[in-house]
């Protein structure tokens, strides 16, 4: 038996919106301590990793580990039934064939229920090693979104360069070349801060179109954390207050 109730259901709605363009069918792992999922996009370039702790739920019960295979596209359709102020409850029996999703609005007394059919997914699970990232950049999520969006209109690829003084996003395309450079900024206004933790500088190139997809999660968190290592995929991380973390991994582009 699994049951989890989230008071701020909008968070779940935003999570589904933030991953639905990247992954299609996903195994959701339920454990007594929380909910997690890991899934790659069809081209094996990007990976979504979500971890939600039971502590963030108003009510949480999972007697055993369970795997719930869902179509994210269909889950997104169901989530559209939810009002932004709804509480969301997820329920599944042992050996379940469907996931029951309940939306409740205590103010308007409206309740919506949907039984989403579960599917069997044979997905590849990757072992992601613990990595000591040599550059970690914490940046306002709205600002990072805007930078990626605007640069994408100029080039398909961005080069991210870090050093102890700044992080630089540079593009080169038919239109020309240029860069956005952000220095370490720990101003009093927290939302303006850009925090650089660089032990070794990194220079890597990435497909901007994926970053734009990841940035849908910017509504979940005021800050985006970019974790870089010269020999590893980029991690774009969004902390979800009191509940967990949504991470995206993106493989770099390498010069031929």
């Amino acid at each position: 038996m699994f049951e989890a109730k989230l008071t701020e259901g909008l968070i779940l709605k935003k999570i589904v919106e933030s991953i639905k363009d990247i992954v299609t069918d996903v195994n959701i792992d339920i454990s007594p301590s929380g909910i997690s999922l890991q899934a790659m996009d069809s081209s094996h370039v990007a990976l979504v990793s979500l971890n939600l702790s039971m502590d963030g739920f108003e009510h949480y019960r999972a007697d055993t580990n369970m795997v719930l295979g869902v179509s994210i596209a269909n889950l997104a359709k169901v989530m559209k039934l939810a009002d932004n102020n709804d509480q969301i409850t997820l329920q599944a029996d042992q050996e379940a064939t469907h996931l029951k999703i309940i939306f409740e609005n205590p103010k308007t007394e409206r309740t919506t229920e949907f039984n989403l059919n579960l599917i069997t997914i044979d997905s590849e699970h990757l072992a992601i090693p613990e990595t000591e990232y040599s550059s970690v950049v914490t940046i306002n999520s709205g600002e990072f979104s805007k930078i990626c969006k605007e640069l994408f209109s100029l080039s398909e690829t961005v080069q991210i360069t870090t050093n102890t003084d700044y992080v630089q996003f540079s593009v080169e395309g038919e239109v020309g070349s240029g860069q956005v450079r952000l220095g370490h900024n720990d101003s009093e206004k927290k939302e303006d801060q850009t925090i650089l933790e660089v032990s070794e500088s990194v220079q890597q190139q990435f497909a901007i179109r994926y970053l734009n997809m990841f940035n849908k999660a910017s509504t979940l968190s005021s800050f985006t954390r970019l974790c870089l290592h010269q020999e590893q995929p980029l991690v774009v991380e969004f902390k979800i207050d009191n509940l967990g973390v949504l991470k995206y991994f993106l493989a770099p582009k390498i010069s031929d």
């Binding site: 081209s43 990757l126 072992a127 390498i254 031929d256």
Partner: peptide
């Protein structure tokens, strides 16, 4: 420029 795959960095669990 060549797009690398994640599977060239991470192995199957």
């Amino acid at each position: 420029m060549q797009q690398k795959a994640l599977t060239s960095f991470f192995s199957s669990a």
